[in-house]
């Protein structure tokens, strides 16, 4: 199975990367986009869903500062 683990900074945590992207928007003439948050995406193949879950909590994500979700991405 293939999964995509989507990781982003927890709500309320200042995300300077997102702010930097936001600051570039006016120079592009973009006016309808706001509240940018920059995270990470980890794509991987797995067999055991429980093991994947535990990998997320042990290594891929720091639950103090990040939220994540696992998205199925095919067989």
């Amino acid at each position: 199975m293939i999964a995509r683990v989507l990781i982003k900074p927890k709500d309320g945590i200042l995300d300077p990367q997102g702010k930097a992207v936001e600051r570039a928007l006016p120079t592009l003439g973009v006016t309808s986009v706001s509240e940018v948050r920059v995270g990470r995406m980890v794509e991987l193949h797995y067999e055991d869903r429980a093991e994947l879950q535990s990998l997320c909590e042990k290594l891929l994500v720091n639950p103090l500062i990040e939220d994540y979700e696992i998205e199925d991405a095919g067989e």
Binding site: P9, I13, L14, P16, Q17, A20, N62, L64, I65
Partner: peptide
């Protein structure tokens, strides 16, 4: 901090 020996986490500097 990552090992759980110390509290908290380190994030990118405010000014990047």
């Amino acid at each position: 901090c990552e090992a759980g020996l110390l509290p908290g986490a380190l994030l990118p500097n405010e000014g990047l």
